[in-house]
């Protein structure tokens, strides 16, 4: 089967809307199709990776452990926009998983080399 470069752009915070959760579902399926998968977290999307999510009080499923499981599906390209982290006073230590932090110029190149860019 053809291998394409799929990029998932996550720009929304978790729980307030369903997009972060349903994006993860597509990410896992895309990996199952042996595609080249990248995830980008920018704007409020960086909050998806915040450590210490406790969802009992809002009775939502806590899906944040899934980000740690991605490696097991060979999904290792996780990119975070540096400026979005800075604007939210977050550092890499605040995040659930190891990520590659990119500048805006690096992100521009990354966007341009993709075949399919999905955002929710």
């Amino acid at each position: 089967m053809t291998t394409k470069k799929f990029m998932f752009v996550n720009r929304k915070a978790p729980y307030g809307t369903v997009y972060a959760l349903e994006s993860l579902e597509v990410v896992l399926i895309t990996a199952a199709f042996d595609q080249d998968v990248s995830l980008v977290f920018m704007d409020d999307g960086v909050y998806q990776l915040k450590k210490g999510q406790q969802t009992k009080g809002i009775e939502h499923k806590n899906f944040s452990p899934t980000y740690r499981a991605l490696e097991g599906y060979d999904i290792e390209k996780l990119y975070v926009d540096r400026e979005s982290m800075t604007a939210r006073s977050l550092t890499e230590d605040d995040l659930l998983v190891p990520v590659t932090v990119l500048s805006r110029d690096q992100l521009t190149s990354l966007f341009e080399e993709q075949d399919v860019v999905l955002s929710f």
Binding site: R11, D43, R104, L107, T108, S109, F111, E112
Partner: peptide, 25 residues
């Protein structure tokens, strides 16, 4: 690359974020 924006720039940050990354798009 074609960047498509569908929300008011005074309501959401999508236009501003896009313009940061637009490159030659």
């Amino acid at each position: 690359m074609l960047h498509i924006i569908n929300k008011s720039s005074l309501e959401r940050g999508s236009l501003d974020s896009c313009l940061e990354l637009i490159g030659t798009g």
